[in-house]
């Protein structure tokens, strides 16, 4: 049997989802953003909700998210994606509405919007990429940057006296009565990629069940910002980020 015999549509087991278009993503090689984009697009295809989904892109690396997933998008001011999503969902209750936000967007400048949106229990999904760094602006310290972790604005490593503690937003959001599903996942290996995809699917499904807000944090890498290869970034994340931001469901009701 030759390769050409195997490479036949009838033998297909995996291909890029059609919800993701052919535009090459601007993310760096090996970036977790790309993996999560792919998973969201796959879930949209599986749920067959391309015509009913509206995404809200943040400011940060994912500001161009709209270019790759073929759905209607709005792009929010820095930190305000949950406010846009609130209005979109309230006015279009039969649509699936999600925000896609990084740690600077969701956990620094948009803290108030994030907390109040979750507290109101808006029926939206929030996908939160936590890579502990400001990727787009060139690797500055984020609210989730670990103690001791280096960034361009903490060149000798973050210290508590100067910058306070890393902020565990997801843990905080799990305390709010408005959230129904709060989970922390990662995409650094196949098993975790599968779990993250399930979580994304559940969050989008929840948004139609009038249960409240679903939050999926994805502990992520930024190999350019961390100055490591993608594979080393995954290892570093496993050894350093995940102990500080342990994976798993914090709330599921």
């Amino acid at each position: 049997m030759t390769l050409n015999d195997i490479i036949d549509p009838k033998n297909l087991v995996y291909a890029k989802t059609k919800v993701m278009n052919d535009t090459p993503m601007h993310y760096c090689p090996g970036c977790s953003h790309s993996v999560v984009h792919k998973l969201i697009a796959e879930v949209i295809e599986e749920l067959d909700i391309q015509d009913k989904t509206i995404g809200i892109a943040p400011v940060g690396c994912a500001v161009f998210g709209y270019k790759y997933i073929d759905i209607d998008w709005q792009q929010a001011a820095h930190g305000r994606a949950p406010s846009l999503a609130t209005a979109v969902k309230r006015l279009l209750p039969d649509r699936y509405v999600f925000t896609y936000q990084g740690d600077g967007d969701l956990a620094a400048i948009g803290t108030a919007e994030t907390i109040h949106t979750c507290n109101r229990g808006e029926n939206i999904a929030i996908f939160f990429i936590n890579n502990g760094i400001y990727g787009m602006t060139g690797g500055q310290m984020a609210p989730t940057t670990l103690n001791g972790m280096k960034s361009t604005t903490s060149p000798s490593g973050r210290t508590v006296p100067l910058s306070g503690h890393p902020l565990d937003m997801t843990k905080l959001l799990a305390q709010l009565d408005g959230t129904c599903y709060v989970t922390r996942q990662s995409v650094h290996n196949i098993a975790n990629i599968r779990k993250t995809k399930k979580a994304i699917k559940k969050a989008l499904e929840n948004s139609m069940l009038d249960k409240g807000t679903s939050v999926v944090e994805i502990v992520s890498t930024c190999s350019a910002g961390w100055n490591m290869t993608p594979a080393d970034s995954n290892n570093w994340m496993e050894q350093n980020m995940i102990p500080a931001y342990p994976l798993g469901d914090m709330k599921d009701i």
């Binding site: 709005q74 001011a77 305000r80 406010s83 609130t86 209005a87 979109v88 279009l92």
Partner: peptide, 26 residues
Amino acid sequence: MVVLQAESELASINMVFGAAGCGKRA
């Protein structure tokens, strides 16, 4: 019509943005 008290003016203007983006009269 939806009437919502937001947590701040920042939130309200951005809710207007979200609604207006859907072609709604906000």
